[in-house]
Design a protein around this nucleic acid. Structure first.
Lengths: 201, 201
DNA sequence: CAATATACTGTATATAATTACAGTAATTAT
DNA sequence: ATAATTACTGTAATTATATACAGTATATTG
């Protein structure tokens, strides 16, 4: 699936917004009006280009016959046990996927991570809970982050972060702080925790 | 909102199915074809009747301009502070609503209740969390329930329940058990907690 | 008993919408 | 260097669609 140009992305977003707002896709004229085109054909040609790149399907002869090809995009993966080594989002780690429901949890969540262990119980994060992780949300001191230290994935609170010293704290007195020197050990902050789901109480 | 006739319900379902399948509503001709009408006007008149009863809105001049009025049905209310006296689901208690996403939290949730206080922190239920409450899920000893005692709503664990003695326990050592005699005091178990959402960590 | 609602057929038309064809111009691949 | 892609304007025709008008027949409500 090729990348869309900036303009094409704009149009795809317009289509999605239109569907969200009104419940059905826009016409060529709607698109032209929204983006200031003077000819509906400008919209038509953009749509053809977007279809060619695989993001939509145009049903010929049907008014507003624009079908989104969102299936993968629409699902949020739930990551169970992370196998040592590979990337978190590797397919073998995906336990299941759940449909993205735009409004349910407002934050932008890239994946859910199933919590293992009791190291965060003091702030109400329990074993088997699902943590909503955002890769893009900015991590600062005090954030609960998903960190990978020497290929092991862990959820902790970020306490200190300088060039040669990173402190991660469990929210459970029985655990000690993890102090890492990123210049010596492998450390990656994979994302920060922005939401929590518990499926059984 | 009046009830739909059998035929009108059939048409409303057809519209919903069409949207689910293709992503946009059917035309009058589509409806006529699907149900075997020989005139698109049959569909038109049904649509007008369904609109009059408040289930859809027809946008004039727009092709496929059928908007579902599903808002109440499809939304799960989020209950903030419960005003003393009235029913939990009374309109003044509804803080917002969030769309029901069948697969996200599998259990059948009738409403979300925003948690006040710290009485359940030991099992990871914190202030401002949203608890998914099911009215129909069977409550048994050990369940976390939403109880109403003398018009005050509270979330506690059900410890004991006999005809003249109900024990509710906070999951926080600083609180004492609540012991109620339902024959003397007013007590209602409104539902049990089946899920939890936390929107910020 | 009359008025209204339900459930259609049948015809017709204005307009909404897709879509083809003919251009222009700048940018990006090959 | 040449072809393809991107990003449009402008026009026009065909088809898709909404929607009004004129009926028929049965059921329900006031």
């Amino acid at each position: 699936m090729k990348n869309l140009t900036k303009r094409q992305e704009e149009i795809l977003n317009l289509i999605k917004t239109h569907i969200l707002d009104l419940g059905f896709p826009p016409t060529r004229a709607d698109i032209a009006r929204s983006l200031g085109f003077k000819s509906p054909n400008a919209a038509e040609q953009h749509l053809r280009a977007i279809e060619k790149k695989g993001f939509i399907k145009i049903l010929s002869g049907a008014s507003r016959g624009i079908v989104l090809n969102d299936s993968e995009n629409d699902q949020i993966p739930v990551i169970g046990l992370v196998a040592a080594g590979g990337p978190i989002l590797a397919e073998e780690n995906v336990e299941k996927t759940i449909p993205r429901s735009n409004n349910l949890l407002s934050s932008d969540i890239d994946y859910y991570l199933r919590v293992k262990g009791d190291s965060m119980v003091d702030i109400g994060i329990f074993e088997e809970d699902l943590i909503g992780v955002s890769k893009s949300a900015n991590t600062k001191v005090g954030s609960v982050v998903v960190a990978r230290i020497n290929n092991e994935v862990t959820v902790k609170t970020l306490i200190e972060m300088t060039q040669n010293k990173v402190v991660l704290r469990a929210e459970n007195q029985e655990y000690e702080d993890i102090i890492v020197n990123p210049e010596v050990e492998e450390l990656a902050i994979e994302g920060s925790c922005v939401a929590l789901l518990r499926e059984s109480i």
